[in-house]
Amino acid sequence: MSEREISYTEAAREALTAAMERDPTIFVLGEGIGERGGNFNTTLGLYERFGPRRLRDTPICERGFVGLCTGAAMTGTRPVVDFMFIDFILDSVGELTNQIAKIQYMSGGRLKMPVLLRGCVGIGGGAATHHSGSYYPLFLNVPGFRVVVPTTPYDAKGLMSTALRSDDPVLFLEHKSLLNVRGPVPEEEYQIPFGQAQVCRQGTTVTVVAIGPLVPKSLAACDTLAAEGISVEVIDPRTLAPLDLDTILTSVRKTGRLLVADESFGPCGVGAEIAAQVMAQGFDDLAAPVRRLNGVHTPTPYSPPLEAAVVPSMDQVAAAVRDLAAE
């Protein structure tokens, strides 16, 4: 049976809709997520279905409504914060790191913290520096968060469904360039467990761990590289916390070479962490140093040629793989 294809955004919205039907304690807060249906159509049609208390347009006060969601989660409801652009989350970092991330621990597990924090990440479309950030390395550094970076419509739906069942705070980060990507998605609900990477393409020469939009870019480079005799294995971690290190180590055991490709910043970033963990647990399997490919460590510029210059391209992935294969 051929599966229908829907967009990434539609897939995530299907999971949210089903969860809200099933669980009357789920509500969504954000700017323009009510009748408007969300700047990115994340809640399109839900206001008519669930009403204003469960689709609550907020004043522009990110710290305030994240703090509100903290208290709500402690008292038996399941808030979803729709930040629109994830850059806006930075106004609420104190509530996130000092409160949301710590309350389960400080209460000895007697309080749960089922807060879903979603927003659009990444560079593209001339959004410039206040609408282009990713920031997930900040949250990986703090104990208490789950960090989810879906790449495909199928994963967006399955991971959203899991996130809406999680008792932990989940950052659900949707890259701009992926929102309208279409793909096969089952109509029924399903969950993808956190901490299960996807091997997107098997290979034997180099392992590429790619995050978000770097997954399609890496896959697009594979055929050219294969023609050159370089067999690339592409892994999409899907969740960065928890991280499925076992799948990465298994791959490195086979290839001996690892590239981590990620649009977000390099210093203290995802690639640095994966490299350190692979060296600690798989050093003897490595035939070459672990390499990283990241976005340029700079605020995001507006002008098209400048913007293009900070984002890792498919060609840069291919070049990095060639270099690594030649070591």
Partner: peptide, 23 residues
């Protein structure tokens, strides 16, 4: 539901509890 070493969040959290109870 908790005391806090940071001044301010309790105001927001009580508001959130109110949101839960209303919902």
């Amino acid at each position: 539901m908790g005391t806090s070493g940071i001044v301010g969040p309790c105001i927001l959290q009580a508001t959130g509890a109110g949101y839960s109870f209303q919902l």
